[in-house]
């Protein structure tokens, strides 16, 4: 560049921990949730239709991207999948059978039928891996302080179920789902 004395003129033309009272271990503490990313490249959105006791798979759509999940204390419903009894996938849901009036006095009512789109990882389409896959949808009955540590293992979640703070509402047939996703 700047070898030439005239260049400035040419350029002129052209330009114009911390940190709480509890312990030092909290330094690396972000928040209680677990943020897990499944490296997969695509994921499915499945439209489910629900009644109080059952569900139907209505439609599916494939999306690009890496689906991640973030475990927070659920407020309504959640879908959880365990592979060999260890947490494989989690998704917080809104109860599809609850209808809420908006404006003035709000009110919740239960519907007989409702639908919901749920994003699911591509591994759910793998027929071999679904042999060891248990997929459930739970309804939340009560506030759970340490949910994040309970949900990681199936047996711990079953303890919550026994304590009736959650209720298993649907058991998703993993092989039927895999078949549906492969259609």
């Amino acid at each position: 560049m700047k070898y030439y004395a005239l260049l400035p003129l040419i350029f002129l033309f052209s330009a114009l921990n911390c940190k709480n009272y509890t312990s030092k271990d909290s330094q690396n503490y972000r928040h209680k949730s677990e943020d897990v990313s499944i490296n997969q490249g695509f994921y499915f959105t499945v439209n489910f239709e629900f009644t109080q006791d059952n569900y139907q798979l209505i439609s599916k759509h494939q999306n690009d991207g890496n689906l991640s999940f973030d475990i927070q204390i659920p407020t309504d419903m959640f879908l959880v999948a365990y592979k060999k009894d260890k947490l494989f996938f989690y998704s917080e849901l809104t109860d599809p059978l609850t209808m809420r009036t908006v404006g003035e006095r709000e009110m919740e009512e239960t519907m007989e039928k409702g639908s919901l789109n749920i994003n699911l990882p591509k591994e759910f389409a793998n027929k071999d891996s679904t042999k060891n896959l248990d997929i459930y949808i739970y309804k939340v009955n009560e506030y759970m302080e340490n949910f994040e540590s309970s949900v990681v293992l199936k047996e711990k979640l079953e303890e919550l179920e026994q304590q009736q703070v959650i209720r298993k509402r649907y058991t998703i047939n993993a092989s039927q789902l895999a078949h549906f996703l492969n259609q």
Binding site: T94, D95, P96, T98, M99, R100, T101, V102, G103, E104, M111, G114, S115, L116, N117
Partner: peptide
């Protein structure tokens, strides 16, 4: 006036 919420869908009128 009004709105209704179900699942992931919220429907509202244009007056909300």
């Amino acid at each position: 006036f009004g709105g209704c919420s179900y699942g992931k869908v919220l429907s509202i009128t244009k007056s909300m």
